[in-house]
Design a protein around this nucleic acid. Structure first.
Length: 557
RNA sequence: UGGGGUGUCGCCAAGUUGGUAAGGCACAAGGUUUUGAUCCUUGCAUGCGCAGGUUCGAGUCCUGCCACCCCAGCCA
């Protein structure tokens, strides 16, 4: 994985693994797994889990399986399976084996029968509503189902009939017989099989009963010889059940479940269910909308795998609630792209400039390095012509000395080019500036004029040689830092200005740009070609992130 | 008023068996600079949810509080 030299920083899970390896638990080996349900796209919260499970295993010379937790055919599809695989690979991780919980359906079924035979499971004929009633509440104990004490024979028969398709959906379930009075709701005879006459993306129509998570997950882990099963804090309450199932079934391999807190990122939503809502309601343009924290969205936005891995490393792993600032993510991508992105010039709000003392058909070729500190990145040609564009923000009719750009009657340097002076401001009847007439000083290429100090340097693009391009800027999708709201409410906190589109111009060298490449538009930020919307005739750029902007801070005060 | 967790700088987060609070991001002030970028330097918790206690010494041990998060799917 190229240049992530650093190992994962210290965290409590690593300490556990270090201890286990030192004491030769599990023969000193580390085997982890990443278990996504293929019912949506992966997001950066999953990236945290991926970096952890894959990263730690790799560090200890262990293995990591990719296992699809595909026990709910109603919500899952191969499209999601493929998207998930693509995202993990793109992030830079390789799984040892590709598995599916559905690979174990036969074994799971046999194990369930043995549970029945040991009087540890029973078929309940209560409907969902009644099961809920009998379960009790957080403060009241539950009551036993009237079907709890059926004979082994009856249970076996019923369970086999469930499997054979003799019942309709919801008519019967198989439950574990644990303790309806347990203070832990998960232990109140959890359901482990339900009837679903639905075809499954992996097993087709072979089954009409499907096992549930609590029963499936621990056994899948065990069957695969997982040593450390990492998951988020919401499963902490499920650990007694995880252990109960493995113990009752006398499984040889008993993985250790370890929970850590899930990632929360400010101004964004980190729930697959809620992201799906945004997609379904067309609030965003699909799962890979650049404003989404999905891996696909981040990729389209221009985030690199390396920057995401760096982010996961920086945020750490604990059990405490967190709400990480966007600034951390932005720092990671700036850090990567500053080193690796070639520099170019692009204008979002073009303002035309005519260089009066340059002949009409003159095209002077200028040389520009692609990176200020990395000669290896080479050089490119720029074309200096009589008509050029600068950004409207880089000109003011009057300004104090703090303003280091072009001011009427004063000088500024064109990046990699000459010093120009603004001589005339051409306006329309509404006082709107149409263009600027300037002169350039031919004696200032690569050297400063004598006796005068130039205010600053601005970027520019040839009006005749440059390329038109659409430039898209993004802001957070939400205007509050923890948009953890109910489905109805969250529409009220959607930022209406989360995307801004500009019709701009970029330098001609960008005609060779391809999807996946990132550039720094000097003085503006980092940009990449939009993988969906851009075409050779009509370039579309997404801004990954702006450059740090201390001028904006100064100007505010 | 059930059970399970968590509380160290604005946001993350290190803190081995108690020995006198890492680091990152952000922020601030300087320096370099043909990107107001990068880079470099410096600063940034007498205090670790609160209150007591033990101890020569406590973020680390004890007691009691408080706050926040998760759990009542035939979702994962």
């Amino acid at each position: 994985m190229d240049d992530d030299r650093e190992n994962y920083p210290v965290n409590f899970i690593r300490h556990i693994m270090e201890r286990d390896v030192a004491s030769s638990k599990n023969g000193g080996s580390i085997v982890t797994r990443f278990p996504p349900e293929p019912n949506g796209f992966l997001h950066i919260g999953h990236a945290k889990a991926i970096c952890l499970s894959f990263g730690l295993a790799k560090e200890f010379g262990g293995k990591t399986n990719l296992r699809f937790d595909d026990t709910n055919p109603l919500k899952e599809s191969v499209e999601f399976v493929n998207a998930i695989k693509a995202d993990i690979s793109w992030l830079g991780f390789e799984w040892d084996e590709e598995r599916y919980a559905s690979d174990y359906f036969d074994e799971l079924y046999d194990l369930a029968e043995s549970l029945i035979k040991n009087k540890k499971a029973y078929v309940d004929s209560l409907d969902a509503k009644d099961i809920r009633k009998y379960r009790g509440t957080l403060t009241e104990v539950g009551r036993d189902s009237p079907f709890r004490d059926r004979s082994i024979e009856e249970n076996l028969l019923l369970f086999r009939r469930m499997k054979a398709g003799e019942f309709a959906d919801g008519e019967q379930v198989l439950r574990l017989k644990i303790d309806m009075a347990s203070p832990n709701m998960n232990m109140r005879d959890p359901t482990i099989y339900r009837i679903r006459h639905a075809s499954h993306h992996q097993t087709g129509d072979k089954w009409c009963i499907y096992p549930l998570y609590d029963y499936t997950h621990c056994l899948s882990d065990s069957l695969e010889g997982i040593t450390h099963s990492l998951c988020d804090l919401s499963f902490e309450d499920h650990r007694p059940l995880y252990d109960w199932v493995l113990d009752e079934l006398c499984m040889v391999s008993h993985p250790q479940q370890i929970e850590f807190s899930r990632l929360n990122l400010q101004y964004t939503l980190m729930s697959k269910r809620k992201i799906k809502q945004l997609v379904d309601l067309s609030i965003v343009d699909g799962w890979d909308d650049p404003r989404l924290p999905t891996i696909a969205g981040l990729r389209r936005r221009g985030y690199t795998p390396r920057s995401i891995r760096d982010f996961c490393r920086r945020i750490g792993v604990t059990k405490s609630d967190n709400n990480v600032e966007l600034a951390v993510l932005e720092s990671c991508i700036r850090n990567d792209l500053d080193r690796n992105a070639p520099r170019v010039m692009g204008i979002m709000n073009p303002l035309k400039i005519v260089i009066k003392n340059l002949p009409k058909d003159c095209v002077e070729v200028l040389d520009a390095p692609n990176h200020p500190k990395d000669e290896m990145m080479g050089h490119r040609k720029l074309h200096f012509t009589r008509e050029i564009f600068i950004d409207r923000d880089d000109f003011r009719e009057e300004a104090n000395r703090k303003y280091k750009r072009l001011v009427a009657g004063a000088e500024v340097r064109l990046r990699y080019g000459y010093v120009i002076r603004a001589e005339e401001v051409i306006k329309d009847n509404n006082d709107h500036i149409l263009e600027l007439r300037c002169t350039y000083d031919p004696d200032t290429l690569g050297k400063n004029p004598e006796g005068r100090k130039v205010r600053g340097v601005i970027h520019w693009v040839s009006a005749t040689e440059g390329l038109k391009a659409q430039i898209r800027l993004f802001e957070p999708l939400f205007n509050i830092d923890n948009p953890d709201l109910s489905e109805v409410d969250n529409l009220g906190v959607v930022n209406p200005d989360s995307i801004k589109v500009y019709e701009g111009v970029v330098e001609e060298s960008l005609s060779a740009a391809v999807i996946g490449q990132s550039f720094q538009f000097e003085r503006e930020g980092y940009f990449c070609i939009d993988s969906k919307l851009s075409a050779p005739e009509k370039l579309v750029f997404n801004r990954v992130v702006s450059l740090r902007d201390s001028w904006a801070k100064i100007e505010k005060n």
